[in-house]
Structure formats: C-alpha cells, structure tokens
Design a protein around this nucleic acid. Structure first.
Lengths: 177, 177
DNA sequence: TAACCCATGTAACCTGTTACATGATTAA
DNA sequence: TTAATCATGTAACAGGTTACATGGGTTA
C-alpha cells in the first residue's frame, strides 16, 4: 500500500523511469521510503493498470530504451485522498532489541561488538542527514514550499538517528564497553 | 526470520502457549516485537518442525486445551548463534514522511490534523514506557541481569518515542499549528 | 443477553527479499 | 579487462495483513 503512494509522491516532483525510482528507493537514507527494483517494477505495472500513472516509451541510441512514468490526475487525486487519512505509528521492530532482551545468554563481548557496529551505522546516517540539511542553508524562509517540506523529512531522520545513537551509548555504558 | 528468534527469545524466560505469545506480541508497545496470532501459530509449527521448540499438550476442564511450547537445546543454540551476528539498521519507513514530503499538495489543516493525531499516539506510548521503567525502581544495581537487559529495551522505546514527539513538535511549529 | 476471555487454526492476499537473467556503453 | 552504469524484467519464497471459522466459560 504505502509503496505505491511513495512512488506516486516521487512522481509529483517529475516523471521517473523505473530505474530512476529504484535508485532513489535504494538506500535506507536517500529517500523517505526504500524498496528494491523488483518491487518497484511490480508496483509500476499495477499502478499503470489502475490508471494512476501513465507511461511514455522512450527510444534511446547509446543506452537501453526506457519507460518514463508520470502521475495522472487520477493518481494525484488518489495520493491526496490517502494523505489526509491518519497514519498510525508503526511498531519499532529492531532486531537488536530482541538480542538485548535476552542478552544474558551470550557473552558481553559479543553484545558490545554488535552494538558498536550499530552505533557506527547510525553515526554515518546522521552525518549524511546533517550534510543534506546544511545544503538548505541558514535561510529557511527563503526556501520554496516543496523544499521546506523536504527539509522537514530530513529533520525526522536527524531525530531518529540521534535517538538511536543515544540508546547505543546507554547500552555500551551499561555493558561496560 | 526475526519473528522466529523473537519467539525463541520469549521462550527463554519460560514456556508459553501460542495464545500467550500472541497476547505478548499483540501491542506495538508491549513487547520488543509484534505479530498477529496467525503469524505466531504458523511460526510455531515451523519451529517445532525444526526442533527448536518442544510441545506439551495440556488438557484443561473449564477452558480449551492448549499446547505449551518450550525452548529446546537446539533452539537455544540457534538463538545464541543468531544473536552474535550483526543487525544492520533498518530503514525508517514511516508513512507520515511520504505525506510530509509532498505536503504542499494538500491543505495545511489536513496535515496539522494527522501530525497532531500522531503526536498523541507517541505521547501515549512514551507514558507507557516510562511507567514500566519506573517499576524497575531507582536501584538499578539491585536488579537481576535479566531485568537489567529488559530495562535497556525500555530505554530504546523511551528514546524512540521522545524523538518522534520532538519531530512532531517541529512539524506542527512549521505548519503553524 | 451481550461482550469478552481463552484457545486454535485455515486461506487468500499483499509486501519484501533473494536469486536468476540479459545486454550494451562507458570509465578506470 | 574489469567494473560500473543504464535498463528491464521473472520466479520462488518469506513475512505480514485481513477475513473467515469454531466454541465453551465468565463477567457485566
């Protein structure tokens, strides 16, 4: 469900090929949603069948031909209708929590190691979000509406990674790392 | 994958029936993992086939008979082996982010409404986590190892909900709510 | 008498992951 | 010559959601 709307949302900005969408949905930090190219091609086929996206076949010489997908009026209307409904908070579902819950059945060293690895990942993600946020500059009011909204999604990433980092620090301190 | 290990982790504490597991995995805030009863019964069948859990059929008079599942040595070993592997951070995947990314195509009022609803949920969740955390009392060092580890998972919930709340506040301020 | 708790399941469907498959162009 | 980029897909499987199905005991 959400993936189709994430695709429609990406198409609000401009038309994309499946390949382009796949690249944008590739990294857990790049876009607001993530998915594999297999999922995206499957979903685009469905969205086309529903009339929510239109396709233009583009012939290319020195590159494979591609299909450019764009948002139809029906697609935009469906997206808007979905947007005004509530989105309940989803459960946390972090594997590390399972591991920590029964942490007493493995060695402290092993736990410290996996929490440290995770700490580094969140550090990297946070740096990425912060670098991107800085590109919006200090003059927030000078930004376009679309840019301001995009900035607010970056804020979510920053809050998220900061909280995860703080938790990893708590745990490492507790484990005596 | 993770669900099976979450079940094994719950069985570390004590044997459970499918119904009991389903109750513990029911709420997004109650346990470290969530799943429906359908998923749990399916998974238990698989875990039994793998020899990771054992079943005891319990006859009851004034209640339906039940099956008590407990962790086998093989199950515990599998859980331990899984626990020492790294758990990469998973993508954020919050529908609200999609909605905010293209927030300019719906009314501010609608956005404020859905963000406020979400804010209230995170408030409720945070209160729950904090109430539970207080039950561990101020004497952390007096707790058993298992209790300390459980407390650390509550800390994750507290960090998580606090971060989400802060983000909702950012967004509401931005939207002029 | 209605709703809830206990207790277990099947079936269909949707979403997400992993593996397989192809093939030209371009940059190191 | 090796790897990356562009570009599209199929197939099998695992994980998660929704709907359907049953039925006794307890509490309001």
């Amino acid at each position: 469900m959400a993936l189709s709307y994430a695709i429609l949302a990406a198409l609000v900005e401009r038309p994309h090929s499946g390949y382009e969408l796949a690249k944008r949905f590739d990294s857990p930090v790049e876009f607001v949603w993530s998915a594999s190219h297999q999922q995206i091609y499957r979903e685009l086929t469905k969205l086309e069948g529903q009339g929510y996206v239109g396709v233009e076949h583009i012939q290319q010489d020195s590159r494979p031909n591609k299909k450019l997908y764009s948002l139809t009026d029906a697609g935009k209307a469906a997206l808007q209708a979905w947007m005004v409904d509530a989105s309940p908070a989803s459960p946390i579902k972090d594997e590390l929590l399972i591991k920590l819950l029964v942490g007493h059945i493995v060695s402290r060293e092993a736990l410290i190691s996996i929490v440290r690895q995770r700490y580094r990942q969140h550090r990297t993600h946070l740096d990425l979000y912060q670098t991107k946020a800085q590109q919006y500059g200090p003059a927030f009011s000078a930004l376009s509406d679309a840019e301001k909204f995009h900035y607010m999604t970056l804020r979510a990433g920053i809050h998220h990674e900061t909280a995860r980092l703080a938790w990893c620090e708590d745990v490492i301190r507790f484990l005596g790392g």
